[in-house]
């Protein structure tokens, strides 16, 4: 029997590889522009606000709120189809970035609420960890 794995990010993609490298140490990072202080997310090499390209990495606390979510009840993906029902969500980190993830650690995903506080729950893999979230 083939062991079906979660699809994982590519660790060589040039804009995001530093983000994924930091996840190995369970650090959730984001960039801020040195010139205009804009928060940049997803990661890039340039500031989308000013014309600068001097961005500094910061580590987020991993805490945030559910902006919206859905409960997946049907999936044909070989990894996810056996996990239904599960919750996918847009999460607003306290530092600003909005990221897509899954909410784990709940018996009934329908009990989740928009606006609910969540914190990162790392799922470890060989080369990196993926930031899932659970209720705080």
């Amino acid at each position: 029997m083939v062991d079906v794995q979660r699809p994982l990010p590519k660790t060589h993609e040039l804009d995001t590889k530093a983000f994924w490298a930091a996840t190995k140490n369970e650090e959730l990072t984001y960039q801020r522009c040195d010139d205009c202080e804009a928060v940049i997310f997803y990661p890039r090499r340039h500031c989308t606000k000013c014309l600068g390209n001097s961005l500094t990495w910061h580590t987020a606390t991993g805490r945030g709120t559910i902006y919206t979510y859905s409960i997946v009840r049907q999936s044909y993906h070989p990894f996810f189809r056996d996990r239904v029902p599960y919750a996918v969500a847009w999460i607003d980190l306290d530092e600003g970035p909005r990221l897509l993830s899954e909410i784990v650690g709940v018996d009934d995903p329908a009990s989740l609420e928009i606006g609910q506080r969540v914190k990162v729950a790392w799922e470890s893999h060989e080369e990196l960890s993926v930031p899932l979230f659970k209720p705080e």
């Binding site: 993906h77 996810f80 996990r83």
Partner: peptide, 9 residues
Amino acid sequence: NMDSFVGMT
């Protein structure tokens, strides 16, 4: 590359 790990449909 930021989204692909999530079981989004």
